[in-house]
């Protein structure tokens, strides 16, 4: 098992004829993702990497049947209309890769998604990858790298990774793989403050995933995602072991370090607050990123002893 993406999911790529859309379609196909169609207004009838291109999502769905997931690679200012187009056409999960999507656009997408019982990942996400199965977005960059970097699930010692940083999603996966840990799915939730599928929602999915034995979090200062995960743990909804690193210890209030979501405002979203909430809920919070693999192995050792 895995969450969000596997080989059975039918995937659409919006903005498939652009620089990123084209390159990432190749990655997704080569890794095993079932990319069935692409969309770019005015480019209907063309082909990209052997994938047929349509003018609209509706037209593509009429011709080929409904898609499970749409991955969006259009310029930031056009993301809102592309996402809403896909949601209204009936796609239930949208992956929004572009950076710099305006906040009110993201909130409007969220509103429309709720009305249609749909969901979205991102904006500003590198995507989702289930090693040995399929990938959405651009994690790994190349299929052969992704295969080389990330272990497939290993019975009894497999983690699911949830990260607020794109690069660190791969980084967590790579260093854990080298330590002999298996990976079910790696999810980059996106670096923005309003995102579709935040850490607590993904943690619930991992809780219900039979392959996943523990959950690894790359958190960051700002926002309330880590605190909300701690609440789920306190309530007994997430019971699998959680091992977390929170970036941005050195960051000062009021200065933003790249990710729009990584800003401390007043006394909310601090490193100390997140660490305290997760620790109180029973999570292992490591001080240095390099301590993550060791802490995961330690968790598995303890589990074995208990079993």
């Amino acid at each position: 098992m895995s969450i969000i993406i596997d080989r059975t999911k039918r995937v659409l790529v919006q903005g498939i004829t652009g620089r990123e859309g084209r390159a990432r379609t190749r990655l997704m196909r080569e890794f095993g993702t079932n990319v069935v169609a692409g969309c770019t207004p005015g480019k209907g009838g063309e082909e990209v990497e052997g994938v047929p291109v349509f003018n609209t999502v509706e037209e593509a769905a009429e011709c080929l049947g409904m898609f499970d997931i749409s991955v969006v690679f259009v310029p930031a200012r056009l993301v809102k209309s592309a996402a809403i187009e896909a949601i209204e056409a009936g796609v239930k999960l949208i992956v929004l890769v572009p950076d710099r999507v305006p906040l009110w656009d993201a909130m409007e997408i969220a509103t429309v998604a709720r009305q249609h019982n749909a969901n979205f990942i991102g904006p500003n996400t590198l995507g989702v990858i289930s090693p040995g199965r399929a990938v959405l977005g651009m994690i790994g960059g190349r299929a052969e790298s992704a295969r080389q970097w990330f272990n497939e699930p290993i019975a009894g010692r497999t983690v699911g990774i949830i990260s607020r940083s794109g690069g660190m999603t791969s980084s967590c996966g790579y260093y854990l793989s080298r330590a002999g840990v298996g990976l079910s799915t790696l999810v980059h939730v996106g670096g923005d403050s309003v995102i579709g599928l935040p850490i607590p929602d993904v943690a619930r999915m991992f809780q219900n995933d039979s392959d996943t034995d523990a959950i690894v979090i790359f958190g960051e200062i700002g926002g309330s995602q880590e605190e909300r995960l701690a609440e789920l743990m306190q309530q007994g909804i997430v019971t699998k072991p959680v091992i977390a690193y929170i970036g941005g210890k050195a960051a000062r209030e009021g200065t933003r370090f790249s990710h729009a979501g990584a800003i401390i405002e007043g006394n909310r979203g601090t490193h100390e607050g997140k660490t305290a909430a997760l620790t109180a809920a029973g999570a292992t919070v490591v001080d240095g990123f390099g301590d993550l693999p060791g802490a995961v192995l330690e968790t598995f050792k303890k589990k074995q002893t208990v079993a």
Binding site: S163, R164, S165, G166, G167, M168, S171, G191, F218, E220, G247, G248, K249, A250, A251, F257, S258, H259, A262, F289
Partner: peptide, 16 residues
């Protein structure tokens, strides 16, 4: 000179 928000913050901590 960092690359990627999360990795940059982590690297900043390392060199600090």
């Amino acid at each position: 000179h960092g690359a990627g928000g999360g990795g940059s913050m982590m690297s900043m901590d390392a060199v600090t």
